[in-house]
Amino acid sequence: MANNPGLKSLRLGLWIAIGVLAVGTGLAALLLPRVSAEPVEAYGAGDYTLVDHDGLSVTQATFASGKPSLVFFGFTHCPEVCPTTLYEMATWLEALGPEGNDLNAFFVTVDPERDTPEMLKAYVTAPTDRVTGVTGEKAEIDKIVSAWHVHAERVALENGDYTMDHTASVFLVGPQGEFQGTIAYREASDTALGKIRNLLAKS
């Protein structure tokens, strides 16, 4: 009876099945917790105290307020990238409508010596009332620039004037300040909106 070949192959099949299950469960046990416990990157972590265009204090906590944010680093003496990006931000916010109510948007100057809160306010609020201008002492701006891994470099022009080389992307930031990606300068509207909707869905 024990030598029945049909029973033998059935028993072998069962053992193989158990083996596969055991290995599979082991692998899952090893891998799954890592996936779900993906570390939350504290992007922009740093001890900086800035001021918004209404004179209110801005710190790291402002970008981890429980709401997701769009953050752009620019300056008012910026001929093209900054106005264009502000207009695009306005366009995205308009396209999102109520869907984007929870989204914060910031325009942080990399040229605090020339950009006062008053100057920034008129500038950033012209295309939309949804973007908050941020400036501050040069030393504090230097801190946020390095905390966010932003490139901002003063470059001399003719006649003693200067411009700023600067990171031209918009940062997508989660509700706890976590870095969620960027929107490139002049990225197609559909792509940009897709990224923002993705950010909102994850928030």
Binding site: P79, V155, L157, E158, N159, H166, T167, A168, T182, A184
Partner: peptide
């Protein structure tokens, strides 16, 4: 006050602008 001839270009995600003397 002044008008200059400039060039700008994206270097990765960094926008750079220079006067063309």
């Amino acid at each position: 006050g002044d008008a200059q001839i400039h060039e700008m270009a994206l270097d990765g995600d960094i926008m750079k602008m220079r006067a063309l003397e």
